[in-house]
Computed example of a mutant assay.
Amino acid sequence: MRRHLALFTTATRYTLTEHLRNRFAMVLVAVFIPLWTMLAYLVMPDSPARMRLRATGEVLAPRGNEITELSGALNAVTLITGFMMFAATFAGHDFDRRLAMAGYPRAHLVLAKVAALALASAAVSAYATVITWLIWTPRQPFLLAVALFSAALTYGVLGVGFGAVMRREVEGMFAILMTSIIDLGLQNPITSSGSESPVTRFLPSYGAMQTSTAAGFSTADVPGQIAMQLCWFAGAGLIALLAFHRRTRNALPPAARPLVPRPHRTSSDETDQTDETANAGTTAAG
């Protein structure tokens, strides 16, 4: 048990170090989130915009700048988390593959990435929730943090999947950006308030968008939408796991793979083996 914990701790430490070394991501977290959300709040008109919350059927009339700021916070959190996980996976896939080929358990590598993703998502989501609360007051700040956190988890595992599949960095960045644009653009609360298209229900952040809207302008609980978002996280995580497993597999034939040395025997082990051999000889002689 201690060995597994040590392996997991070591892999997590290296993964977190890789994130902290990404200074551009740190700048995005510190600057992009407040800048984007504040501009969305200041530029958009504050006139009420009638819309129906599909999760509960309520008809709401939030201010245009507040609902736009909420959508901007969700967009910023998903983009940054996706970029962070993609950059870490893409830059470290050769290192991960060497570790796996050397015998480092893949399960510990995967769990380390999940732990790092959870910590990064929690930090970014909490920061975005505080920024939103300083600009205006959502009705359910904790539920808003949960919505942002679940969306960040989803895009984080998407970033891991893209990082394990894409061959060039620009391809992965473009894939994350276009996924976010299509996802949040089609379900923008202002432009799609009257749309009842079932397609939007299958978008990656649909559950998070419904939950964040309820958190901002309603007192209703929406556990079904959170569960839907976590299902997206689980599905995307499974695909990312398969891609990571394929990327770190040993392509050498079994005959060409290096032999794993047997564990070194201690003097006590040799003594026990000698005693067992002697006993076996005595039994055979009798």
Rank of each mutant, 00 (worst) to 15 (best):
L148S: 03
L109R: 04
P138Y: 03
W136C: 01
V130H: 10
A116K: 00
L144P: 13
V124R: 05
L148Q: 06
H108I: 01
A152L: 03
A128D: 06
T154K: 08
T132N: 14
P138I: 11
L134Y: 09
V130P: 04
P138C: 03
V160A: 08
P138M: 07
F162S: 11
S150L: 14
F149D: 09
L119N: 06
A145I: 04
P138L: 07
K113C: 04
A115D: 04
K113E: 14
A123G: 05
A151V: 07
A122I: 01
V110M: 09
A152H: 10
V157H: 00
A128W: 02
A123S: 13
V110L: 15
R139S: 06
A126T: 14
A112C: 02
A115R: 08
V146Y: 03
A112R: 01
L144R: 12
F149N: 01
G156K: 05
V130I: 15
A126K: 11
A151L: 02
H108R: 06
L134K: 10
V124T: 15
V124F: 14
L134N: 11
L143T: 13
L111V: 04
F142R: 09
A145S: 10
T137P: 08
A151S: 13
T129Q: 11
G161E: 09
T129E: 00
P141I: 12
T154E: 00
G156C: 08
A152I: 04
G159Q: 10
P138T: 06
L117S: 12
S150V: 12
Y155H: 06
A116T: 14
A151K: 03
A147K: 07
S150M: 13
Q140F: 00
T137L: 09
L144D: 12
L158P: 05
Y155E: 03
L109A: 04
V157N: 02
A118H: 00
Q140L: 12
V110P: 01
V157L: 00
A147D: 05
T137H: 14
V160F: 01
V124P: 03
G161D: 03
L143C: 05
L134C: 11
P138K: 10
T137G: 08
A115M: 07
V130W: 13
Y155A: 09
A116Q: 10
V124D: 06
V124C: 05
K113P: 02
L153C: 04
L143Q: 15
Q140D: 15
T129P: 03
T132M: 13
S121F: 12
A115S: 13
G156Q: 10
L134D: 13
T154W: 13
A122L: 15
A118G: 05
L143D: 14
Y155Q: 07
Q140N: 10
A126G: 15
I135A: 08
V157G: 00
F162C: 13
P141N: 05
V130S: 05
L144C: 08
P141R: 02
